[in-house]
Amino acid sequence: MRDHGFPSPGRPSSAASALGIATTGLATALILVLLAVILGTVVLQGWPALSWRFVSTVPRRDFFDPQSAAVLPMIIGTTTRILLMTVFVMPVGVITAVYLSEYARADSPYTHAVRVAIGNLAGVPSIVFGLFGLGFFINFLGRNLDRLAGTSGPHWGQPSLLWASLTLAVMTLPVVIVATEEALRATPTGLREASLALGATKLETILCIVLPQALPGILTGGILAVSRAAGEVAPILFTGAAYYMASLPQKPTDQFMDLGYHTYILATQSPNIERTRPILFATVLVLLALTFSLNAVAILVRARLRRTGRDIA
């Protein structure tokens, strides 16, 4: 492809330019069409099965049956694991990024190794994170905690909200680190110099000037992490998601039901696929709505921060 759609000086070619515009425009339209098809199918097929009872009750009997199916425990499970994950991943990710961009020597082999590790971590398939969570958090950390606490049965050493959230936090760590580093780098040198020249320490400058300035960018990292984690099923398969629980999770060491995993169950385990299909789509619709609203909250907070940053203290 020689023509990339940008008019180049000395070689004006309106035909090539038109072709470029058409190609890029078509590619954009394709994405919009795909999105519309996905959303349209989910909404059209899922909407009829959606009801207040469906989203606000615990399924008492058969959850493959549209009469008794309900997703409240899954909504709560998915929301909780995402929020818990955010609580774990944000501080660790932000502190790591601050170290890398503000303190670490750019040319040291250690910094280089950390960066390579972050890059590799981002490329690991999510099922591997699931197995890692099972091996490290549950079988190693959990069991040893049980041994130390001297509990009779497994309390820590079993799949739970806590371990699933931690596994997801490990998985989304690179996203937060990279976004935060970018935001820190984008902070104007002039602001740092202003603070340091007043006699502020490096730490004061980072905490009071640089981090607040970078906050919208850091939130972008959080948004990306939430988006990535919300729909993931593989990392929580072995680390916390349950096929069925009669009651809602009460504490972080309880297992939970999850919208994504439940979608998989409805799609593959139903004794009557035709009968289950509407609630399958309704469940997907709820998952999409939940992901969108979590993102919307974060985006609103970020927009508010940006506005305050510009206007008032």
Binding site: P188, G190, L191, E193, A197, A313
Partner: peptide, 14 residues
């Protein structure tokens, strides 16, 4: 020893 820079650099605060 205070300093004033070429490009004014007020903090984005009040």
């Amino acid at each position: 020893v205070g300093m004033v820079f070429q490009r004014s650099n007020p903090f984005p605060r009040s």
